[in-house]
Each structure stands twice: as structure tokens, then as C-alpha cells.
Write a protein that binds this DNA or RNA. Structure first.
Length: 464
RNA sequence: GGCCCCGUCGUCUAGCGGUUAGGAUCCAUGGUUUUCAUCCAUGUUACAGGAGUUCAAUUCUCCUCGGGGUCACCA
């Protein structure tokens, strides 16, 4: 069975890049009928926080990406790691190194001065004498010093590393006994049954080290898929400095999970010319072999387009529900269908949609200068009065078409063009140009409010 | 600097030896619309460069250039 994983270290929020690899892992597991598991890599006690873990979990919940089974916390697995450290020590595949941090720094500086590669020199590899006093030893693994390490990567192909170029006897347990990343990753991936690792290609150069661990422990090596990075507009790895990279910011800004996921799945992956993918389609069509080799630049233009697409195609009842997050309560508004039908084609985000609703529902308190100049000229007020009178005498006004036919009556009786009533009325209703059809606006706010707004606009603008 | 990866429109990408190099987004123009938006139509823009291999290279090989990643008792 295919088991994939997402293994964040809880040092901050869930960012866009992490979410994409998580999504890929999730989709592939579901595609194969396998499992997608979550592991929190919290071995660095100094940098981890519980809030970060919760933030990550919350983001997954918002997006509907559910992990299978229990969440694994590395911080709770010390005994397991200790067991394997002991095993390697007993088998002579790892050893204690009593070199102090100062000595290590000195060694590095010498190597740099000689333009050599900085690496541990193996001085305690075969040490059998009396250890120095007062040094808590680290545990180092005996890595191969020569030969070739091959990484079979499902995205990049077979990559060859020379041991002498990249390896040294790296630390697997710190002075305080805490195990290090490259060691625990290999152990956990094996123990958790993960056989397909999809992760960022910044991990590519870690992979040979992890292979050393796999081999020392006799574990089967999983399949690797190293996904290219997402870059910022200046071509560098996306980081927290690049503005909106917190996934939850997108919720705040009014993006829907469907749009964000659809956007991310197309970053570095494609299925022919298809742009729109439902979750179901993503699962059916995703295959890591179709992942691109090259990095992509993060640019949200397309996200806006996708988000407006999804908003247009979301049922009004659901939109009304989503808008409550922006203090817009339409759930029981009797004209919400008409309102949202008119408005959802004009919003790129839910937040914009909220603003648009606000603008319709609220009586305008000010009038745009330019709009007044354009609309309230000639006999504009006479036209408004005429319409107002018709409106007061009418009853049974429900649909936009009811309001529209009254407008047409005025137009034909006064022998004017439609613009002569349209523009002034629009400005009277909204205080500015632009916006949805005026008959829709009137139907939504109703007869009394319409009359009020017309009256207000005449009073406010005839005094000036 | 060592090692590794990458290089098609501004951006996301299709392409897997022979194509007028396709789609999407963005931008521009036109149409629809009382306005704005939507929608529709049209248009501008790309194979980093150089050698090879081949009847034929965007596609295969090598080199150059450019970009990125990584080199911890971080993950």
C-alpha cells in the first residue's frame, strides 16, 4: 500500500510551499488508495512551539486535507531513536566523538583557509584510548568515505553523488543525546511504513545522508520525489519575508480552499491543458511522474482568476454562509438569491463580495463628485421625482423587472433616453457610478428604501 | 567556493525528432451592458547561447552562460 507523509517542523505557520508538497502527497496517497500521514518534526526543542503545531493543524482543517491515523510527534519517540543509536554503536557502525565545539570550529576554519571542503576529519572514528574529561560526546555514524551514492528520484531521475564530495561521519545524536534530523527522518519514514516520499527539492542533498542511515540500519529505501521549489518574484526560495505565505492569510483575504488548492496543484504539475480541477479530479489525475523539474515563481494573478471562478460557481446559500465570517448576515434575507447572483460575478474574493454587499445594503452617506457632475445635470431631478412618484403609487413590487418596467414608463412618457434615468438613479442609490443593474439594487433594498435614497440624494445635492 | 538541480510567452504550463510551437493568466483592442463587472471575440509576447548527432532539432549529447538549492551538535 502506498503511504505518503507530510512532515513539517513546527517553527511557524503552514506556508504555501509546504502546503503544496502536502497536497501532492495527499493526492497521490488518495489516488493509490493508500494513506497520507502527518508527522510533526519537533526534535529541536529550542525552536518549536505548540502554537505552530496548532496553526498547521488548523490550516489543514480549513483546507479539508485530512491526515490518516494518529499524528506522530518526534518529540515523543526518544526511546525509539535511542534504541537505534545503541544498535549502531553496538554494531560498530557509529561511534562517540569527543571533539569539542571549539575544536570543530577550528578544524573548519583551517579547512576553509586551505580551500578544502569543510568536513569532520574522522579523528574519533577508530578511537580506543581514554576519552578527554568534561566533554559530552556526540554520536557520529560511520559513513562511506568513497564510492557512489545513487538517489533514484521520481521527478529528477537518477542522481549520482560521490561520497568523498559530500559525506563525512555526520552527527546522529547531539551531546545531550538528542537525535538529529537526517537520522530520525530515515527511522520514522521506515517505521511508519512510508514508501513514497514527496518533499521539496531542498532536501535532495540530504538524501544521500539518509540513505547512509537506511543502509546502516538495513531499512528498505523509499521512493523519492523531490518537488522543485516555489520562488518569489526575484527568483529566490519562498520565505516568510515574502508577504502572504501563511496559508491562513488566504482565508482572511477571502480565498476559498477550492481555489487555493486548484492554484497550488497547477504550480509545478499539470495535466495537459486543464486548468480547473475539483478535488475529485485532482485525486484521479494526479501522478508525481508529471511533476515538473523546474522551479516556479509564485504569482497570484491566476489565484485571483481561480477564486472568482469558484465564487461564481458557488451556490448562494453557501456564499451567504461564508459571508458571515465578514459580518454579513444574509442567511435569511428574502432577496439573497437576486443579490448574490448579481454580485458574485463581480468579486475576486469573499472579502470583496462582502464589501459589495455592504455597498448595496447600506444607505449612501456621501456622493462621489465626478458621479454627481455626470449624473445630476439637466432635468435629472425631474426624472427622479417622476420615478419616485410612480414608485410610491405602485404596489406589488418584487422582482427587478417590476422596477424596470416603471423605469421604462418614465422614459417613454418623458421621451428621454434610458441613460437619462439610469445614471441619476444609480448615483441616488449608491452614491457613485458602477455596480450591478439598478433594477436589481432596487428589488433588493425594496420600495421604501429606494424612495428614501432618491429623496436623500435630491436633498443633499440640490442644496449644494 | 565544492556538490547537486534547473532553463519554452511577464507568469503558470503543453510539447516527449518533422507542429503555422498549443492552452491559461496578465495586458491591449473590439462587441455585449444605462454604468462597472461578467461574458464573447481578436491581438502582442517564448524554445538562454554555441557546437555536435541526424535527412530533420524546442525535443538527443557536450560546452558556455544564467538561475536556484545545499554544504550545522536546524529541520
Amino acid at each position: 500500500m502506498t503511504v505518503t507523509r507530510f512532515a513539517p517542523s513546527p517553527t511557524g505557520y503552514l506556508h504555501i510551499g509546504g502546503l503544496r508538497t502536502a497536497l501532492f502527497s495527499y493526492l497521490w496517497a488518495k489516488n493509490r488508495g493508500g494513506k497520507f500521514v502527518l508527522r510533526i518534526e519537533d526534535t529541536d526543542k529550542a525552536r518549536n512551539s505548540e502554537e505552530a503545531t496548532q496553526a498547521i493543524l488548523k490550516a489543514f482543517e480549513w483546507l479539508g486535507l485530512e491526515a490518516d491515523g494518529e499524528i506522530t510527534y518526534q518529540s515523543q519517540r526518544d526511546e525509539i531513536y535511542a534504541k537505534y543509536i545503541k544498535q549502531l554503536l553496538d554494531e560498530g557502525k557509529a561511534y562517540k566523538c569527543y571533539m569539542s565545539k571549539e575544536e570543530l570550529t577550528e578544524l573548519r576554519e583551517t579547512q576553509m583557509a586551505n580551500k578544502q571542503r569543510t568536513m569532520y576529519d574522522g579523528r574519533y572514528r577508530d578511537f580506543s584510548g581514554t576519552p578527554p574529561e568534561g566533554v559530552a560526546p556526540v554520536i557520529r555514524i560511520k559513513a562511506p568515505l568513497t564510492g557512489e551514492i545513487l538517489v533514484q528520484d521520481g521527478v529528477k531521475g537518477t542522481i549520482s553523488f560521490q561520497a568523498e564530495d559530500i559525506l563525512d561521519d555526520f552527527v546522529i545524536a547531539r551531546g545531550d543525546g538528542a537525535p538529529t534530523y537526517n537520522f530520525v527522518v530515515a527511522i520514522d519514514d521506515y517505521l511508519m511504513g512510508i514508501n513514497e516520499v514527496i518533499r521539496g527539492d531542498d532536501h535532495l542533498s540530504n538524501t544521500p545522508k539518509q540513505i547512509v542511515v537506511y543502509e546502516a540500519l538495513g531499512f528498505k529505501i523509499p521512493a523519492f520525489y523531490h518537488v522543485p521549489m516555489i520562488h518569489n518574484s526575484s527568483g529566490k526560495k519562498l520565505s516568510k519575508r515574502d508577504g502572504a505565505t501563511d496559508v491562513m492569510d488566504y482565508k482572511e483575504m477571502g480565498y476559498t480552499p477550492a481555489a487555493l488548492l486548484n492554484f497550488l496543484v497547477r504550480l509545478g504539475w499539470s495535466h495537459g491543458d486543464q486548468e480547473i480541477f475539483s478535488m475529485q479530479e485532482m485525486i484521479e489525475l494526479f501522478n508525481p511522474k508529471d511533476i515538473n523539474k523546474s522551479a516556479s515563481i509564485y504569482n497570484t494573478e491566476k489565484l485571483d482568476w481561480l477564486n472568482s471562478h469558484y465564487i461564481k460557481n458557488t451556490p448562494n446559500a453557501e456564499l451567504a454562509e461564508l459571508l458571515t465570517a465578514y459580518d454579513i448576515v444574509l442567511t435569511s434575507h428574502d432577496k439573497k438569491e437576486i443579490l448574490l447572483d448579481a454580485l458574485k460575478e463581480r468579486a475576486k474574493t469573499l472579502k470583496e463580495l462582502a464589501t459589495l454587499v455592504e455597498e448595496i445594503v447600506t444607505t449612501p452617506s456621501s456622493f462621489d463628485e465626478k458621479a454627481i457632475k455626470k449624473a445630476f445635470k439637466g432635468d435629472a431631478f425631474d426624472v427622479l421625482e417622476a420615478y419616485s412618484t410612480k414608485l410610491s403609487n405602485a404596489d406589488e413590487l418584487h422582482l427587478p423587472s417590476d422596477y424596470h418596467s416603471l423605469m421604462e414608463e418614465v422614459v417613454s412618457e418623458m421621451e428621454i433616453g434610458f441613460g437619462k434615468i439610469g445614471m441619476p438613479l444609480r448615483v441616488a442609490l449608491l452614491g457613485k457610478m458602477g455596480g450591478p443593474n439598478i433594477d436589481v439594487i432596487m428589488a433588493v433594498i425594496g420600495k421604501e428604501e429606494t424612495l428614501l435614497r432618491i429623496k436623500n440624494s435630491i436633498r443633499a445635492n440640490s442644496l449644494a
